[in-house]
Each structure stands twice: as structure tokens, then as C-alpha cells.
Amino acid sequence: MNTSNWTWFHRLGSPPTLYRLADRLAPWFGWAAALGLAAGMYGGLWLAPTDYQQGDAFRIIYIHVPSAYLSMLCYALTAGASAVGLVWRMKLAHAVAVAAAPLGASFTFLALVTGSLWGKPMWGTYWVWDARLTSELILLFLYLGFLALNRAYEDPRSGERAAAVLALVGVVNLPIIHYSVVWWNTLHQGPTVFVGGGSDISPRMLAPLLVMLAAFTCYFVACLAKRVQAEILERERNAAWVKEMLEYS
């Protein structure tokens, strides 16, 4: 294999490079997120027409769907970084996984809370033990277990590796969450936004949702970058480049 194709990978594996990259990217993604959230909420809460079945309660979709989507994307990232850390023994990959997990947990929590606030007026109950809600709750426990395992060992390396294995085992939950509304009978509505042959919802309702999805993703990248920076600084506190950087900034 041509080794030169992998130089970017090795460079990302260098703590100062990743630290500086995160430092440079975070503000851009942060401002993009702020603009997107403002535009998306204006579109979703004011411009979008009232739903003929759900009234204005449907407007919860603009935070519920992005939260749920990020709860899963973030898990995929946590598990992917964990795999890289286990296979290539790359310390930074574990740092990324540990940085992503609390964000994922908060998005999962938000998806569950906004979902139950949407469920009460629509289904008449805050909670039902069906496949979609239960598997999303399990996702929250996976995140919490991952974070707890990370700190459960005296040697942080052992904790990282144990947590990484848990993250990989938990990947089986992702397709279950995604297909739960198709595989099992549920109160939760089926796929509406991205279905074969185009979307089921009107463009004036859909556009703000797409904006919110993009804004939440930018927000996630910005927060992740800052968390990765903190993880790197903590792990590299005695490195020469950290001392140099602190001196000249």
C-alpha cells in the first residue's frame, strides 16, 4: 500500500496538530450553529404552517429529530474512535471518544425529553415501553456505562480500553433504534422525512428541519472540538509543545 496516503491520518494522530485544528475550527462551526439555530427556529416556530393533524405541537420536531439524529451519529463516532484506539493503540482516538460521549448522552437525553413532551399531547402519555423509546433509553445507558467504565480503573489506559469494548458492543443498538419503527408496532410515527421517492412533508415544514439538522451538527462539531482540546491538554500537560504554546499565547 502506498504509505503517503496515510500521512493525514498520522498527522491527525499528533496531539499538537489536532489541538490546533480543533482550536481553528471551533469558532467557525460555533457561529454557523448560532446562525443556523436562529434561522431554523424562525422558520420552524413562526413561518412553518400549522400541521393539520398535530396542530402546533408538531413544532417540537425541529429539536427532537436533530437531537435523536445526533444521539446516534455521536455514538457511531464514539464507537469508531474507540475501534481506532483499540486496533491501532492510538491514544488520541480514545481522547476523541471520551470527548464525544458526554455530548452524545446529552443529545440522547434531549431526544427522550422532547419526545415525551411531544408524546403526551399526541399519544396521551409521556412514555410507552415500545421498541423505539426503549432502544433510545438503552443508548443513554450505553453512554453512561461508557463514561463510568472510563473512570472505573486506577490505570486510565485500562479504563479506556474497557470502555472502548463496551462502545463497540453497543453498536448493535444503532440499527435497532433506526429500524424499530419499521420492525415493530409502535405509537411512534414511521419515517416521514427521508422516504423512498421523496419526502412526505411540505417544503415549508421541511426546510427549517434541514436547517436545524445542519445547525445541530455544526454545534456538535464546535462543542466536540473544545472538548477534544481539553482532553488533549489534560493528557499532554507535561509535553514540551504545551509549555511552549502557553508561553507564547
Partner: peptide, 16 residues
């Protein structure tokens, strides 16, 4: 008032 759903909609956005 969100057409009567204000409590639910605004609680959800507040949590977010």
C-alpha cells in the same frame, strides 16, 4: 400559546 400546546412546545425548547 402554540394553539393550546404552548406548555409542551415551550418546555421542549426550554430543555433544548
Amino acid at each position: 400559546t402554540m394553539g393550546g400546546y404552548g406548555a409542551y412546545v415551550w418546555s421542549a425548547y426550554g430543555a433544548a
